[in-house]
Design a protein around this nucleic acid. Structure first.
Length: 627
RNA sequence: CGGGAUGUAGCGCAGUUUGGUAGCGCACUACGUUCGGGACGUAGGGGUCGCAGGUUCAAAUCCUGUCAUCCCGACCA
């Protein structure tokens, strides 16, 4: 490609709306242009990067035995009603009506379509297993799109769905996909970590995410990992063992329960100051609302935070949120900072909406006129608290020296309603080996789920098994954010001057820069190299613009071409300069040696074994992260 | 959805307080000089000041509404 013809509108300054590095650089270097909030044009350079990533994904998916197909973006609501997600998915799902007034959606994912397709096309166990994938645009009307391509409303995703006759076969395929993913990201030049994750709205039990670790602001997920055993999980899922803390308040409060004045203590910090005690001696009670209608309480130690995804899963909610001030008054007869059940009576009962989940209910029998009763979940951190502090809904007062009832029935009731609800912290202990847990930020570029029969049951998708009976497909699904992977690569590989693409996903590998386009010697030599590169299958640009050398260098660096060949003063002697974008190494070589050198660089960057060796140091065994 | 901010040339911004002929830098066009790290000179082109109402002799500027974009929040009793 001649630079004079390349459609890549570059900007000298960062656009006003771009916050994160990948968004800024991709915009400045002429790769993308925003069309609406969270919606972008992929300009020619970006499109080439996408094609590169897609090609790697296709090769590895095909290699793993999956088959590519293409499903529609526009889908009938019927399928979503059938799966139950029409009611559950919320505003992220883009819904509209066609001219016949039929409800439609723009697919945020394709479980419904693929399940229906499999049901129509697969009738016998003899046709299984099968793994089908596509690379397709996806639509999610994010509450708040941001970070450029990292969280858009329209994005490109590879999504694969596998169908099996058994959980065991699903697990086999799951491992095959995990290995394919490892190869894909490695081949893109990205070091990823496979971490345990929450399965969220998509359902199913076991799932993992592939994260590009970033350290910086741009990563939007917390990743907890253990260097000694390889345990890794995202913030929504991570478990941890708490380091020692003061959990017996005898020395401060004695062993007798009493009510003390705590004026204006509506948060943990002021309460610890007021009562002169560590936060770990507080049993914090959080009033949540399940699915907008059902209030319940979560008990957690005062120095910890609740992980809402864990809470949501524990109560089997579609959505939870903290109660607002009015609801605190209505459901707990209290105010912020003073919610608690000291003084309420404990009952073994399941309230509507919590069946099979929560069997502990506290009743305020001393406030009969209000009929207050709340289901309660405990985080495991509060069980061994002794002589601790808790509120009793009396504003301006707390109870100290409080203890859980000691009788066997009460203890059992407390224990059966105890879950892991806390958010892990860096510095806690690893749940598998007790070493110190680390935390970093990460960008999720891929995920794999064991769906089981969630969708096949909901949509009655079956095959006939060997024994002649109808059975539901056992399913798995596997996603890779193509556009997000490209953006993550920019987050990972850039410097002050611009992008520094890994060779395998660069839009062009080499930028040939004749310093002076008017100099016939330089131009001839440059053009010859450019032609040779193309003939050898190495994608290149030649900067034929009538610009000063500085401008050409700057643009080449901004756009991030991995290798620059400068044809300058020494062209007369047949000597060229080869500079690597990443690392900045410079070599002067006779013209004849340039192509072999570049080919060796490309070979180095695309050879799987060599890539694997390069990343080995920082890469934990995938097996260590398995659940 | 709540709070905050911003919409003026392709991009980045000033001008708005105090109403009076629409500006600067970059980019773009032409010519000349320059030519290995975002050159310089001269001469140009390009904007119904987000949109719609209103006030006024007169509105980028004041008022009302609306749309768009960005940031923060929508989680820690």
């Amino acid at each position: 490609m001649r630079m004079s013809q390349l459609f890549a509108p570059t900007l000298r300054e960062n656009p006003h709306e771009a916050e994160v590095v990948s968004h800024q650089l991709l915009t400045r270097a002429g790769y993308i242009r925003q069309i609406a909030r969270g919606i972008y044009n992929y300009l020619p350079l970006m499109q080439r990067v996408m094609k590169k990533v897609e090609a790697i994904v296709r090769e590895e998916m095909d290699r793993a035995g999956a088959q590519e197909l293409l499903m529609p973006i526009m889908q009938p609501a019927d399928l979503w009603i059938e799966s139950g997600r029409w009611a559950v998915y919320g505003k992220e799902l883009i819904r509209f009506k066609d001219r016949h007034d039929r409800d439609c959606v723009l697919g945020p994912t394709h479980e419904e379509v693929i399940t229906s397709t499999a049901n129509n096309g697969i009738h016998s166990y003899k046709q299984l297993p099968v793994n089908l994938y596509q690379i397709q645009n996806k639509y999610r009307d994010e509450v708040r799109p941001r970070f450029g391509l990292l969280r858009g409303r329209e994005f490109i995703m590879k999504d694969a769905y596998s169908f099996h006759t058994s959980q065991a076969d699903l697990e086999r395929e799951y491992d095959v996909m995990a290995e394919a993913y490892r190869r894909i990201f490695l081949r893109c030049g990205l070091d990823t970590r496979m971490v345990q994750s929450d399965s969220g709205a998509i359902g199913g039990a076991v799932s993992h995410e592939f994260m590009v670790l970033t350290q910086t602001h741009s990563g939007e997920d917390d990743v907890y990992y253990c260097d000694s055993c390889g345990y890794a999980a995202n913030g929504e899922r991570a478990e941890s063992i708490l380091p020692d803390a003061t959990v017996d308040g005898q020395a401060i409060f004695g062993t007798t329960e009493q009510v003390v004045d705590t004026p204006d203590c509506d948060d943990i910090e002021s309460l610890t100051k007021c009562l002169k005690m560590p936060a770990s001696l507080i049993c914090k009670a959080l009033l949540y609302i399940k699915d907008e209608t059902m209030p319940f309480l979560v008990f957690i130690r005062g120095d910890l935070e609740a992980e809402e995804i864990k809470v949501q899963n524990a109560v089997a909610a579609n959505h939870i949120r903290l109660a607002d001030a009015d609801e605190v008054a209505e459901f707990a007869h209290s105010a912020k900072g003073y919610v608690g059940v000291a003084g309420w009576r404990m009952c073994n009962e399941e309230l509507p909406g919590f069946e099979g989940r929560v069997s502990l209910v506290y009743r305020a029998e001393h406030l009969k006129e209000y009929h207050l009763q709340l289901p309660v979940l405990l985080d495991s951190s509060v069980l061994n608290l002794k002589n601790f502090a808790m509120a009793n809904n009396e504003i301006g007062k707390h109870v100290v020296g409080y203890n859980w009832p000691h009788d066997r029935a009460s203890q059992e009731l407390l224990e059966t309603n105890t879950f892991d609800l806390k958010r892990a912290r860096a510095g806690d202990q690893c749940p598998t080996c007790l070493a110190e847990l680390n935390m970093t930020r990460g960008i999720e570029v891929g995920n794999i789920f064991q769906l089981g029969t969630k969708y096949s049951e909901a949509m009655s998708a079956t095959y006939t098994d060997e024994d002649g009976t109808e059975k539901h497909f056992v399913m798995g699904c596997y996603g890779i954010g193509i556009s997000r992977t490209a953006a993550a690569a920019v987050e990972r590989y850039h410097d002050q001057d611009g992008i520094a693409w890994p060779i395998p996903i660069a839009p062009y590998v080499v930028s040939v820069v004749p310093v002076n386009a008017d100099d016939q010697t330089q131009w001839t030599l440059a053009k010859q190299l450019y032609d040779d590169l193309q003939a050898a299958g190495v994608e290149a640009v030649i900067d034929d613009r009538d610009e000063r050398a500085g401008v050409k260098f700057k643009d080449s660096e901004l756009m991030g071409f991995p290798i620059r060949v400068t044809v300058g003063k020494k062209a007369a002697d047949g000597v060229l300069e080869v500079k690597l974008r990443e690392g900045g190494d410079v070599k002067e070589l006779p013209a004849a040696e340039v192509l072999p050198y570049i080919r060796s660089l490309v070979e180095e960057a695309t050879d799987f074994a060599k890539l694997e060796a390069r990343f080995k140091a920082g890469q934990p065994a995938a097996a260590g992260a398995a659940s």
